[in-house]
Design a protein around this nucleic acid. Structure first.
Lengths: 251, 251
DNA sequence: CGTGTGATTGAAATGCTTCAATTATCGTGG
DNA sequence: CCACGATAATTGAAGCATTTCAATCACACG
C-alpha cells in the first residue's frame, strides 16, 4: 500500500478543548440526532455527556489498544477511523459523520484509532454511566442499537465495494457517498468538497494515492466529473455516475 | 467476478422443518449462547422463539428485499449471507456460525439473503414480540447489542482483509478464521473441513475460484498446508501461517 | 463406467502497484 | 502581495498480481 507522508498519520499533541456538560442545545443544526432521540432522551444523555471541541483536523480522539472508558458520538465535523498494521500501513475503516457512533470497544479496549479530519464537536459518554443509563432506559438503548446496526450497514457496503469494484468504481462509489452529506455538497453548483487527502481516500479504498489520481482522471475523461481543485470536484450527473457504479459501462 | 455454476446460487425450494417452541434445552452443545445469556434470559427468549431445522445446505432462510418479520440466531450449522448485484454477481458478506445473529433489517426489509450451507438449526424470533421483550428486559437487550457489535467487528476485519491483503493472504486469513470453529477443526490431526465450495470462498474473498485454487497451491508450495481433498486441508503450522498473514514473508 | 460438476492448471490480457519525475497547491515569511 | 519551499497530486513507464478464457484433471453419483 502506501508509504507514509506526513499528513496521514500525524496525530498532533493538541488536546481538544472541553466545553462542558451540554448536550443538544436547541437551535443548532444536528442532522441525525433529532430523528433518533426524543428530547426527553436527549436530556437524559445530557446528564452524562461532555462535548469535546476539536479545533483542527489531525487530532487523536482515542487510539487502538487504549483502555476504553468512553463512547463517542459525532455532533459536527468528520472523524477518520483507522487501524495500525504490523507492516506500517494504516487502513482507513471509515469516515464518521454527525450522528455516527465511535469508540465501540472490545474487551475493554479500543480496537481502532480515531482522529478528527476537520474541526469537530464530539460528545463523550463515560461507559459505566452510559451502561447504567441504557439499562434504565430501554427505548434509548434500542436507539443506540439502531446506530450500531447503521455502522454494520456501512461496513457491509464497504465490503462489497472492496470485494467487487475496481479502482474507478470504488472512487465513484465513495464520491456518491460523500454527496449524501450536506456538509460537503453544494447542490446548486454540484460542487463536492472533499475533506480528506488522496492518501486518506486511498487508504479507505484499499489502493494507492496514485491509483486514486488515475481513477479521478478516468472519471473526468468519462465526463462524470470535473476537478476544480485537489479537494473539490463538480459531479456532472450523479445519477449517471450511480448507474456507472451499478454496472452500466458508459452510464 | 465469477460465472454462475449451479452450486452457488441454487436455492432449493425445500422448506425447513419447523420443530417447535423450544429454546436452549440443556444438554446439547451450544457454544456461544450459554456464555452470553443467563438461563433466565434464555427462558424468556424461549417463549417467543421457534427452532427451524434445515435438513440440507442450499436452503433459503430469507431473501434480500423481503419484508422482515423475524430475526434469526444460529443454533448449529453454518449459514451464508450474500447480496445480489445488478450484474449477476453474488458477493458473500459473511459466514454465520452458531451464536451469530442474522436477518438484521433496514426499513422493514432484509438487506441480504441467507442460505444454509450445511444442515442447520436456527432460532427465529418474531420482530414485534422481540422488540417488546427487549424493551422489558434491558439486560437481554444489552446482550443483543453485544452480538451486533460482534457482527460489526467481523465486518471490519473483512474490510481490512479485502483492502490490504493479496489473494494468498486473504485465503490464509480465511483459513485461520475457520480454524477458530471447533465444528470444522480436528485439533488432533490439524485437519480443517471446509463446508463451502471454491466459488463461495472466492465470492467471500472478492476474487475468482481460479485464484482461490492458485492461492491454495501457493500456500501448499510454501509448506503452510496440505490439501487432502478439495474440502479438507491440514494446516501444518497455524502460528507460522498467522505470522505470514501479519506480514512476515516466509512465516 | 460414463457423465456432470467442481477443482486445478496454463497462457494471454488486463489492471494495479511501484518507483521516478514533474506539476500544482498551500502556507509562510519576506 | 508575492515568492519560496514544502507537501500533495498527477503522470509516465516497468514490473507484478490478478482476471479471464480454455483445457484438463478428479471425483461423486447415477
Amino acid at each position: 500500500m502506501t508509504r507514509s507522508p506526513t499528513s496521514r498519520g500525524e496525530v498532533t499533541g493538541r488536546r481538544p478543548k472541553i466545553i462542558a456538560r451540554e448536550f443538544l442545545t436547541t437551535g443548532g443544526q444536528r442532522p441525525k440526532l433529532d430523528n433518533l432521540l426524543t428530547s426527553a432522551e436527549q436530556a437524559r444523555l445530557a446528564t452524562i455527556a461532555t462535548l469535546l471541541e476539536y479545533q483542527t483536523g489531525g487530532v487523536a480522539i482515542f487510539s487502538e489498544g487504549e483502555d476504553a472508558h468512553f463512547l463517542y458520538l459525532v455532533d459536527s465535523g468528520i472523524v477518520r477511523i483507522s487501524r495500525h498494521l504490523p507492516n506500517g500501513d494504516r487502513p482507513v475503516l471509515g469516515f464518521m459523520w454527525p450522528g455516527d457512533l465511535l469508540g465501540i470497544a472490545e474487551d475493554g479496549r479500543y480496537i481502532n484509532s480515531a482522529e478528527s479530519l476537520t474541526t469537530a464537536a464530539i460528545f463523550r459518554f463515560p461507559l459505566e454511566r452510559l451502561r447504567h443509563l441504557l439499562l434504565s432506559e430501554p427505548l434509548l438503548q434500542l436507539h443506540m442499537l439502531t446506530k450500531v446496526v447503521h455502522e454494520l450497514r456501512k461496513a457491509q457496503r464497504q465490503i462489497i465495494v472492496l470485494g467487487q469494484f475496481n479502482n474507478v468504481k470504488r472512487l465513484a462509489s465513495f464520491l456518491l457517498d460523500c454527496r449524501q452529506h450536506v456538509e460537503l455538497f453544494e447542490s446548486l453548483t454540484g460542487r463536492l468538497i472533499l475533506p480528506m487527502s488522496r492518501f486518506d481516500i486511498a487508504d479507505y479504498l484499499g489502493t494507492s494515492p496514485e491509483s486514486v489520481a488515475r481513477a479521478f482522471a478516468t472519471l473526468e475523461r468519462g465526463g462524470f466529473l470535473r476537478r476544480t481543485s485537489p479537494r473539490t470536484v463538480e459531479l456532472a450527473d450523479p445519477d449517471r455516475l450511480a448507474r456507472f457504479v451499478r454496472g452500466f459501462p458508459q452510464g
